[in-house]
Design a protein around this nucleic acid. Sequence first.
RNA 1: GGCGGGGUAGCCAAGUGGUAAGGCAGAGCUCUGCAAAAGCUCCAUCCGUCGGUUCGAUUCCGACCCUCGCCUCCA
Length: 480
Amino acid sequence: MGLKFHNTLTRGVEEFAPLTPPHVGLYCCGPTVYDFGHIGNFRTFVFSDVVRRYLEFRGFSVNHVMNITDVEDKIIRRVHETGQTLAEFTGRYTDAFLADLASLHCLPPHHLPRATAHIDGMIQLISRLMERGIAYRTADGSVYFSIDRYRKSERWPGCACHYGQLVNLNIDDQRQTERVASDEYDKDNVADFALWKARVPEDGAVFWPSPWGDGRPGWHIECSAMSMALLGDSFDLHLGGEDLAFPHHEDEIAQSEGAGGLHGDIAGKARPFVKYWLHGAHLLVEGRKMSKSLGNFYTVRDLVGRGFSGREIRSLLMSAHYRETFNFTLAGLDGSRTALARIDECVGKLRERAAGTTAPAAPALLQAFTEAMDDDLNISRGWAAVFDWVREQNRALAANELDAARAAAELAAWERIDHVLGLGAKATDEAPAEIVALAEARVAAKKAKDFAKADALRAEIKAQGWVVEDTPKGPKLKRA
RNA sequence: GGCGGGGUAGCCAAGUGGUAAGGCAGAGCUCUGCAAAAGCUCCAUCCGUCGGUUCGAUUCCGACCCUCGCCUCCA
């Protein structure tokens, strides 16, 4: 059986068949850079990293695109407040975001388009929508997408003109929420969304010229323009957090297909904007919805500041299936640390046994892991395969059943798996010379059967922040 | 009000119409001068509640309870 994904578009699990194998175009909605990303944001980004890595593991050639939203309402407000330029302000948070991504062992996406670098494409899309009569300009110079005209418009290949593909909604019978009711804009219909927002004094220097006057793009059109510019008008995978399914992704479909694509390919080839939509669930923190007032709002930096490593955070974020709400806890991070140590220990022993020998990867672990991940990325089952393998290797090592060649084969298998999990080796920490000297003195005391002195030296080492463990090959020093 | 997820051991979390993966925590054992670390073993007669279908249901159906998300710019 092949790889399967749950597609929000069809609300079911489907065989993954890319448009032009072995190439896969993958777009994930990236961050809006107005603050440091929190652990919930990064669950989605780690998820997209795992999708990319697993596709590569399965032999696909992935073009991974993640946008950086660097112009948006909150950003403009903060720029206005801080007196910085747009580039200064967003540059700082973009750098922080990329650093956090790296600390979580996420591979850098192949392209990280900035919205401000794709204004032309957005204007082009809006122009096409205006030409087709699906968009309209209001008195203040803003441009909106008319859902009504889109739905009533003549259908053409590649565009079903159906609004409500990702979520079941009866848009004629929507409850008026407070946000809608308080909307001040001059729109034909409350459900219409902005494609272009006319310049207002508070925007300061943040504006671009357009056929409709100075202004800036709406949020949804940014992703349509960037994804189609880099992946073509029709591509394989579009990922994001579950909250983006509506309205953000729904609007992307409407705009992109309504415009016939950025290059006119959607209509020409009768292909949809995106073939598979994958949405990652949110997480709770300590059992509650994450919020600053509850004190359970963590950025990656907060957790690193508490002494957790990126790989520990990453492995916890990867512990549950991506479509399930996951409860992220500090106790869980401690658990990840212990569990990773178990893997590290086993891999370390295999490496020792293999002693530099190389061999083709042993099949058992690869097969069990692939079976799990092929099933809509069932990573919990994937972890089970890994830990079953760890137990089996430990047993075989203890029973002296592994020669160098077999150890090397198992190690090769693990390395392929780790290329998907992205855990890497744990950071090793060399003890300073004075600590090593104390440990050596302790070995001498032990040899002389002066255990009182040996224990005193162990206490001394501990007081200096190190732990000494006796192994068959002599003492091992670890940071306390 | 509409739509969509969930409720599985102390905690996290897979899964299946035929009798419950994995991780953490806990217990026992091995190793050790003692430790530590590590390893091995054990650890849910039970899957929110109540009904129904079935030879058999945690798994299917119905009702109910609880919980989370979306319903116009929030991953």
